[in-house]
C-alpha cells in the first residue's frame, strides 16, 4: 500500500509538469493545426538557459523563470515569424511541410546546443534538489512539489488568460475557425505568432522547473517531444482540459510502469498508451469532456 501511495504521489507530481508541456503543444495544435515536433527541443533550450543563468549568474532556478520564459517566448515568435508563417504562402504538394519544418528546426536547435555545450550531461544542484518532506508516511520531493505548485498556478493563469482576456478569446477564435476570425478583424497571422511564443514559453517553464531534479544533455529534446505528442493525442488534439488530464495520466502511467513493470519500460509506456488511445478512444479525452 505504501509503495502504491508513493507511486501515486510521484506520478501526479510529474504529471503536473507534463500537463504544462502538453498545454503548450495543444495550444499550437489548436491554432496552427500542426504538431510542433520541436517542442521538446525548445524545452531543452530553456533548460540550457536555466543552466547558464544558474552557473554563471548564480541565480535561483525559480527566479530564472523570469528569464527563460521570455527568452523562449521570443524564440517561439521568431521561429513562427521567419520559418512557419512564410510557408503558408508557399504552394506545395504536402500539407505536412510545416511539420517537417519543425523537425528541421528541432534538429538545428539540438545541434547548436551540442556545438556550444558538448554532449556531456550537466545538472543544476541546489540545496533542495534532494530534499524531501513526509506527509503521512509518503515522501514528497521538495523540488518536485514546488514545481507542481508552479505548474498548477501557470495552468490556472493560462486558463484565465484564454477565457477572460481579449487576446485569449482571439486565440480561441482562430483555433475554431481562422477564416471567420479574420473576417471579424482578428489578425490571424499575429495570433499564430503569439501562440507559438506562448507554447514555447509554457514548455520553457516546464523545463526550467524540471531542471533541479533532472539532468540535461542536447538530445533530451527528442524524448520530451514524444511525451508531448502522446499527451496531446491522449487529451485530444487542441483540447486544453484534455492536455492537463493527459499529462497527469501519462505521469501516473510512467510512474506505475516504472514501479511495477521495470525501469527500462518507462519510455515504452507512453508509446503503448498512444497506440491504445488510437485503438479505443480516437479523439482522446476531448470526446469525454467536450472541451
Amino acid at each position: 500500500m505504501e509503495v502504491f501511495l508513493q507511486t501515486l504521489v510521484a506520478g501526479v507530481l510529474k504529471g503536473g509538469l507534463y500537463a504544462l508541456i502538453g498545454l503548450g503543444m495543444t495550444l499550437i495544435m489548436g491554432v496552427m493545426g500542426i504538431i510542433n515536433l520541436a517542442h521538446g527541443q525548445m524545452m531543452m533550450v530553456a533548460m540550457y538557459v536555466t543552466y547558464v543563468c544558474f552557473n554563471y549568474l548564480g541565480l535561483d532556478p525559480y527566479l530564472i523563470l523570469f528569464i527563460s520564459v521570455p527568452a523562449l517566448f521570443l524564440l517561439g515568435v521568431l521561429v513562427q515569424r521567419y520559418t512557419l508563417n512564410p510557408l503558408l504562402k508557399v504552394e506545395s504538394l504536402l500539407p505536412e511541410n510545416q511539420v517537417l519544418m519543425t523537425v528541421g528546426v528541432g534538429m538545428v536547435l539540438t545541434e547548436v546546443a551540442r556545438f556550444i555545450f558538448t554532449s556531456n550531461y550537466v545538472s543544476v544542484k541546489t540545496t533542495y534538489s534532494d530534499a524531501t518532506f513526509f506527509l503521512g508516511g509518503v515522501s514528497f520531493s521538495v523540488a518536485l512539489t514546488i514545481a507542481f505548485c508552479f505548474a498548477c498556478a501557470l495552468t490556472g493563469g493560462m486558463f484565465w488568460f484564454l477565457l477572460k482576456t481579449d487576446l485569449g478569446r482571439s486565440i480561441r477564435a482562430v483555433a475554431q475557425d481562422a477564416e471567420a476570425a479574420s473576417l471579424m478583424g482578428v489578425n490571424a497571422e499575429r495570433i499564430r505568432t503569439l501562440t507559438m511564443g506562448l507554447g514555447a514559453g509554457l514548455v520553457a517553464a516546464a523545463g526550467n522547473l524540471l531542471l533541479p531534479i533532472y539532468y540535461l544533455f542536447p538530445d533530451i529534446g527528442g524524448p520530451f517531444t514524444r511525451k508531448a505528442f502522446v499527451i496531446t493525442i491522449l487529451g485530444g488534439l487542441g483540447s486544453t482540459v484534455g492536455a492537463i488530464l493527459g499529462g497527469v495520466t501519462l505521469g501516473l502511467a510512467e510512474a506505475f510502469g516504472a514501479t511495477y513493470i521495470g525501469m527500462e519500460f518507462e519510455d515504452m509506456v507512453g508509446l503503448v498508451i498512444f497506440i491504445a488511445v488510437l485503438l479505443f478512444l480516437p479523439g482522446g479525452f476531448k470526446r469525454l469532456t467536450k472541451i
Binding site: 528541421g104 528546426v105 534538429m107 545541434e111 551540442r114
Partner: peptide, 28 residues
C-alpha cells in the same frame, strides 16, 4: 573536428532551406 560531426546540423538547415525555397524539390 566539428564539421565531421555536424551532418545532423547540416541536414536540419537543409530541411529548412529546401522547404522554403524549393518546396517541390529539385526535380519538381
Amino acid at each position: 573536428k566539428y564539421v565531421s560531426q555536424a551532418h545532423v546540423l547540416a541536414f536540419g538547415i537543409l530541411v529548412v532551406v529546401v522547404i522554403m525555397v524549393l518546396p517541390n524539390g529539385l526535380v519538381g
